[in-house]
C-alpha cells in the first residue's frame, strides 16, 4: 500500500511511574509495544474501555507524553528529539481536543480563547483575526464570539475548543473522548464537526468508547491492556466476536439478528442509515 504517514508509532512502550532502577515491570506499562501508522487524510477511531491505554496513546501523538521506549514520528519528526528544542513544531501539526470542555479554555472571552493557539506560534495579528473568525464560523459559534465561556453549554464550549485548534491550522486533529461529558445534542454537533474536518482533508483521530461514533471512521483500532487488540475497517471489526465488553452499534446488532432469520445483510453495513437504505432498497431476496 502506497502510504504517506501522518503519525508513525514504532514499538511504543510507556510507563507512568518508573521503578527505582528505571526498568518498569511489563505489567506497569500503560502502553505496551504498540506499532501502527496513521495515514494522511484518514479518519481513525481508537476504541477501548477505561484503562485500556487509549488516552495515553493519544497524548503520544503530539508529544504531550514521550515514549519510555520505541519512537513516535509526526510528519517524520521524532517527538523525543523535537521536544528538547521546539515541541510546538509537533503540536502545530497535530492539534488536540480534550474530554472536559471546561478545563481547556484559557480566556474569559470566546474569541480571545480561539486566538490563544495562533498567538503562541507567533502568527501575524491580522492573520490571527482572519483565522479566528473563520474557525468560529466553521463550528457555528461566530455570534457568541464576545461571550464568556461560563455562559455556554458543554457542547458549545467543546465547539470553541475545536475552533481554537482549527485556528492553528493543524494537518491532524486528535480528539480525546470529546463527547464523553456532553448530552446527545452536543454529541451530534461535535460529530458533525468532526465529519466536516475530515471532509476538508484533515487527518482525524477519534478516541472514544462509543461504538456508534467509531462506526463513522474509515478504520477502527481496538486497544486492550495497552496493546492493539484489533485493527481494521468498521465492517471487519464488528464481524469479530471477541470484542468483550465493548457494546456493538445498534445497526450491527440488528443486522446480526436479521441474518439469523435469513435476511442477508452485507457485512459492511454498520450504521442505521446504511441498514435502512439496504432494507428499503431490497425488493427481492
Amino acid at each position: 500500500m502506497a502510504s504517506d504517514p501522518m503519525i508513525q508509532l514504532k514499538d511504543v512502550r510507556f510507563a507512568y511511574e518508573q521503578g527505582e532502577d528505571d526498568t518498569p515491570q511489563a505489567a506497569e506499562f500503560a502502553i505496551d509495544g504498540v506499532s501502527f501508522n496513521i495515514e494522511k487524510g484518514s479518519f481513525v477511531a481508537i476504541v477501548g474501555s477505561n484503562g485500556s491505554g487509549k488516552s495515553t496513546l493519544a497524548k503520544h501523538m503530539n508529544a504531550l507524553l514521550l515514549p519510555t521506549s520505541g519512537e513516535v514520528l509526526v510528519d517524520d519528526l521524532n517527538t523525543v528529539t523535537e521536544s528538547q528544542t521546539q515541541p510546538w513544531e509537533i503540536r502545530k501539526r497535530v492539534g488536540m481536543v480534550f474530554q472536559n470542555p471546561d478545563n481547556q479554555l484559557v480566556s474569559s472571552v470566546v474569541e480571545d480563547d480561539v486566538a490563544f493557539g495562533p498567538e503562541n506560534i507567533g502568527i501575524e495579528p491580522s492573520e490571527i483575526r482572519r483565522r479566528v473568525d473563520e474557525s468560529l464560523q466553521m463550528v457555528g459559534m461566530y455570534e457568541h464570539r464576545k461571550k464568556g465561556p461560563h455562559l455556554l453549554s458543554g457542547g458549545q464550549k467543546q465547539r470553541i475548543a475545536i475552533a481554537g485548534v482549527i485556528a492553528m491550522d493543524p494537518e491532524c486533529v486528535v480528539f480525546d473522548e470529546p463527547t464523553a461529558m456532553l448530552d446527545p445534542k452536543g454529541r451530534r454537533e461535535i460529530m458533525s464537526i468532526i465529519r466536516k474536518l475530515h471532509s476538508q482533508g484533515r487527518t482525524v483521530v477519534l478516541i472514544t468508547h462509543f461504538m456508534e461514533e467509531a462506526a463513522e471512521a474509515d478504520r477502527i483500532i481496538i486497544m486492550e491492556h495497552g496493546k492493539v487488540h484489533a485493527d481494521g475497517t468498521p465492517a471487519q471489526i464488528f464481524s469479530r466476536d471477541d470484542l468483550g465488553v465493548l457494546a456493538l452499534p445498534f445497526a450491527v446488532k440488528m443486522a446480526k439478528r436479521l441474518r439469523q432469520s435469513g435476511i442477508d445483510v452485507p457485512a459492511d453495513i454498520v450504521t442505521d442509515e446504511q441498514l435502512a437504505d439496504f432494507l428499503c432498497s431490497k425488493e427481492q431476496g
Binding site: 503530539n62 504531550l64 488536540m96 490563544f116 495562533p118 495579528p125
Partner: peptide
C-alpha cells in the same frame, strides 16, 4: 484537577511562555 487539565491543554496549544508570542488585539 482543573489546573492539571488546563496546563496540558495549554501545552497542546503550543504555549511556551511569552517569548515569540503575538497578540490578536493590537
Amino acid at each position: 484537577r482543573i489546573a492539571g487539565d488546563l496546563a496540558m491543554a495549554m501545552e497542546a496549544r503550543c504555549y511556551h511562555g511569552g517569548s515569540g508570542r503575538t497578540r490578536m488585539h493590537q
